[in-house]
């Protein structure tokens, strides 16, 4: 990640007036309307908003999984027309493969993404070691041989984060990854996530409906309106890192969460 300086502070990801409609003709529903935002390299952004506001759609657009109906999406200054490489994704559903052990699940991106794909067979030991280290860093050391269905929900989600990060992607997409977990596990994983990000400084996009989660993890929070989603507020979170669970009780943190909550309540009221 040393080539950061080459485009002189230009944003890594840029959305210009992006809209997306599902379906065709009269049945078309506009999921996202005129979204404009930019993400710097190494920035952690969060997107929050009422349910059904097109948050997940935004994520699929940035990765090129969905083509926009109108507008431009640029990554590294180039227009995105097909799925871009080198992205890590983690969803609410861990989507681990039940026929692979946890270790083999995390090795998957290395079997698919260049340049690892070519080196994979010859250098498997090195990659296995990398996976073991990553597992240990999220508190799953020694669980590599277990199948995903032998792990708890929190452990599965940790493995899922490992799989999303193992190939050292430039961009990490998180779609409510902690949404299905209990409160304690969730807060624990915020810490894990922050630690990984501070070590590796990838660019992260977190889609969530948990405002405390957004304020804990993100540098910048985008608040979206209800469907069709528009970006209504950009909020910078100026809390020092590393943030801890203690920070979530500090007045400034609470203030930020309050402000976001008010904005979203107004959206529901309209």
């Amino acid at each position: 990640m040393a080539q950061a300086a080459e485009n002189d502070g230009a944003p890594l990801v840029e959305l210009r007036g992006v809209s997306l409609a599902y379906g065709r003709g009269a049945d078309a529903t506009l999921a996202l309307s005129d979204a404009t935002l930019s993400i710097d390299k190494g920035e952690f952004i969060a997107v929050v908003g009422p349910s059904g506001c097109g948050k997940s759609t935004l994520m699929k657009l940035v990765t090129g999984l969905l083509p926009p109906t109108s507008g431009d999406i640029l990554v590294h200054g180039r227009r995105v027309t097909k799925p871009i490489r080198g992205v890590g994704m983690a969803f609410q559903n861990p989507t681990l493969m039940p026929w692979r052990t946890t270790r083999d699940n995390i090795l998957l991106p290395l079997e698919v993404v260049e340049p690892h794909k070519q080196r994979f067979k010859a250098n498997k030991a090195e990659y296995v070691e990398r996976v073991e280290k990553l597992l240990a860093s999220v508190g799953l050391g020694g669980f590599g041989d277990k199948y995903p269905w032998q792990l708890s929900g929190g452990m599965q989600q940790r493995s899922n984060l490992c799989r999303a990060l193992v190939h050292e992607p430039e961009i990490l997409m998180l779609d409510e990854p902690f949404g299905a977990l209990d409160a304690f596990t969730r807060e624990d994983l915020w810490g894990v996530m922050q630690k990984l990000w501070m070590e590796r400084r990838f660019t992260a996009v977190l889609v969530t409906h948990d405002l405390r989660e957004a304020a804990y993890l993100a540098d910048t929070i985008y608040v979206m309106s209800k469907r069709p989603g528009r970006v209504i507020v950009k909020k910078t979170v100026d809390l020092p890192r590393p943030r801890t669970l203690e920070s979530t009780f500090e007045p400034h943190f609470v203030e930020i969460v309050h402000e976001l909550r008010d904005l979203i309540h107004q959206e529901y009221a309209v």
């Binding site: 999984l65 799925p83 871009i84 080198g86 992205v87 890590g88 969803f91 989507t95 998957l108 993404v113």
Partner: peptide, 13 residues
Amino acid sequence: EPEMRDVMRSLGA
């Protein structure tokens, strides 16, 4: 699962 497909596609599979 569509998510599984998305994970694979985003890896460039």
